[in-house]
Design a protein around this nucleic acid. Structure first.
Length: 608
RNA sequence: GCCUCGGUAGUGCAGCGGCCUAGCACUGAGCCCUGUCGCGGCUUAAACCUGGGUUCAAAUCCCAGCCGAGGCGCCA
């Protein structure tokens, strides 16, 4: 009864041999006489032939089997007939002429189709996730994730990193993301939190002397979901002692090389580097997509003397006028420009001004406010030519950059779309050429973003908050600024960005209690509060905390990108929907009153 | 909390005041067919998210709700 082969491994070499396969019926093609059944497992698809002249009884049984039934079939591997080879199938040169068939289980008609290119709605997919996961593409993604995790473990172990588990039940933290909370039955009225990341524990491990640590760790955050944000996600968490930014960059670059090698993607190291300030100014984002060339420029000086109140008002409020040259986009239809305006407003810009470059001048409703000298200056700064479209946002620097940065992404999308259309046109004139999916992911534009600001001012209270987290070390040369000008302090923090997605984030940590105390006081934590929240950590450093640094790599995002998507649900076996629910098991669920009583919890939920 | 888009057979789409007795494809059921591989042919079953309203007439327009997706806020 035992299977001898998988559905993906039989080739010409096996011709004449006996084989027993197990799997699910992908499809059945009944020709009245001969019946073909494609049997599928996670390794592939094999065609099994039921021929009445070969074995009448077996053929008879195969007449009544259906999609997704589970079979075990035994027979002889034989070559397919002349001209019947299926080149799209790994096993397309052979087939099995079946001697026996045993039905291991019947199956209801599946509510979604087990096909790569017939995709049901997100809702249906999650409700029947176990069926969705039968689709070969999903199996490949899950396999890819496994292989990447293996590669990471191997690489890190070989480089002296120890995988150490940290607790899942931890102390709730009021800062940062909202915690998932777990009641303690034996400690009435008290709660654990599920960890947002192993951050504090890995720092403690450094103090304990485990100078190289890693963990493939589940992280949990009770925040709203996005395509690239799930309530639970996985991080390759790394920390190393007696090391600084350059050391951790080397480790991560080596790791990324190994990980992408899993998918046969060669990458160049070291990665490009950009400061946070440059990234914001040039690309309007702290996670710029560097596959796109378009750069923002600053035309504040050029328009400063023009009589255009929209620009002048913004400049007067210590704002800037940023400009994006959408090359060759002058012919962009008005409704698409309107979409860009709406997009800019979504990102808090007051508006989006635009001008077409014609005969070396600006053609626009705002052109009358800008005299020839100003126009020339703008065109010069933007390096614009006839046929280009210039887009302007005048606002506070962060808003102007961010809004125009979003416009930049949208413009790039439009450009790729029209490029694809052109290619399709030229391709359709050539025969037999089909566009390949992989082309879109051919570039792997990694970049380190460094030198983030240490603090951000809260607009409402005007007080300082930690931009990243309060355990980041200020840059060495900025430590004295902590006392004089905290707003100018840059931190030894860094992100790794890949194709517009933040893949990793990390920092050099504060190991000196006196600096830590200073940081706490700048963000308005007095000694008592700091002691209550993070006392154990500060205490630990007083017993000889080594200098150390680390990163947390978003594994799901990384695997998703390697798999050619930006949706992390595609690489998580059982993800949640947008409302953080699971349509399959219907979690989260009510607790019955006995359980609540046991936990000393009374509910206060208003339900309509 | 807010904004945008969507909800039509099992699945994916079309229809967007009367030509709707709601169309198409896949799926399902049944019959025919000995070389298919998205088999083919014939037959057949199966749907307008809920509740109000407008109208002579609503899948279609309006309002409220529910559900889903994308985004803003949020994510130290």
């Amino acid at each position: 009864m035992l299977r001898t082969h998988t559905c993906g491994e039989l080739t010409r070499k096996h011709i004449g041999k006996k084989a027993t396969l197990c799997g699910w019926i992908q499809s059945r093609r009944d020709h009245g006489g001969v019946i073909f059944v494609d049997i599928r497992d996670r390794y592939g698809l094999t065609q099994v032939v039921f021929d009445p002249s070969h074995n009448a009884a077996t053929h008879k049984r195969a007449e009544h089997v259906g999609r997704e039934w589970v079979l075990i079939v035994a027979g002889t591997v034989r070559s397919r007939r002349e001209g019947m080879i299926n080149p799209r199938l790994a096993t397309g040169e052979i087939e099995i002429i079946s001697d026996t068939i045993e039905i291991l289980n019947k199956a209801e008609t599946p509510p979604l189709e087990i096909e790569d290119d017939l995709i049901a709605s997100e809702d249906v997919r999650l409700k029947y996730r176990y069926l969705d996961l039968r689709r070969p593409i999903m199996q490949q993604r899950i396999l890819l994730k496994h292989n990447i995790m293996q590669a990471a473990r191997t690489f890190l172990s070989e480089n002296g990193f120890l995988e150490i588990e940290t607790p899942l039940l931890v102390k709730p933290t009021p800062e940062g993301a909202r915690d998932y909370v777990v009641p303690s039955r034996v400690n009435p009225g008290r709660f654990y939190a599920l960890p947002q990341s192993p951050q504090l524990y890995k720092q403690l491990l450094m103090i304990s002397g485990f100078d190289r640590y890693f963990q493939i760790a589940r992280c949990l955050r009770d925040e709203d979901l996005r395509q690239d944000r799930q309530p639970e996600f996985t991080q390759i968490d790394i920390e190393m002692s007696f090391a600084g930014q350059e050391d951790i960059f080397l480790v991560v670059e080596g790791l990324m090389k190994k990980i992408l090698a899993v998918a046969n993607i060669p990458i160049n190291t070291p990665f490009q580097r950009l400061t946070y300030a440059d990234a914001m100014n040039k690309y309007g984002s702290d996670k710029p997509d560097l596959r796109i060339g378009l750069e923002l420029c600053d035309v504040t000086s050029a328009v400063a003397n023009a009589e255009f109140s929209v620009f002048n008002t913004a400049i007067a409020k210590s704002g800037v006028v940023k400009c994006l040259n959408a090359t060759s986009c002058a012919s962009l239809p008005r409704n698409e420009i309107d979409e860009l305006i709406t997009l800019a407003k979504t990102h808090h810009a007051q508006g989006l001004a635009w001008a077409k470059v014609t005969k070396g001048t600006l053609e626009s409703s705002i052109a009358k406010y800008l005299d020839t000298t100003v126009q020339k200056a703008i065109i010069n700064i933007a390096k614009a030519n006839d046929g280009d479209l210039l887009l302007f946002v005048a606002d506070k620097p962060k808003i102007a950059c961010t809004a125009l940065g979003q416009v930049r992404l949208s413009i790039a999308q439009k450009m790729t779309k029209s490029q694809k259309k052109k290619e399709e046109k030229t391709e359709s004139s050539n025969t037999n050429t089909r566009s390949t999916k992989s082309a879109a992911q051919s570039e792997w534009a990694f970049a380190w973003i460094t030198d983030f600001p240490m603090f951000a001012r809260n607009e409402e209270t005007q007080s300082f908050e930690a931009e990243h987290h309060p355990f980041c070390m200020p840059k060495q040369e900025h430590i004295t600024l902590l006392d004089t000008a905290p707003e100018n302090v840059l931190a030894s923090t860094y992100d790794l960005v890949l194709n517009g997605m933040e893949l990793l984030s990390g920092s050099v940590r504060v190991h000196k209690p006196e600096i830590q105390k200073k940081i706490f006081s700048i963000i308005g934590l007095n000694e008592k509060e700091a002691e209550k929240k993070f006392g154990f950590l500060v205490d630990a450093y007083t017993f000889g905390g080594p200098p150390h640094c680390g990163v947390g790599i978003g594994l799901d995002r990384l695997v998703a990108l390697v798999a050619g998507t930006t949706d992390i649900r595609e690489v998580i076996a059982f993800p949640k929907n947008k409302a953080a629910q699971c349509p399959m098991d219907e979690s989260p669920a009510d607790l019955d009153s006995l359980q609540l009583k046991d936990l000393h919890i009374k509910l206060n939920v208003v339900r309509p």
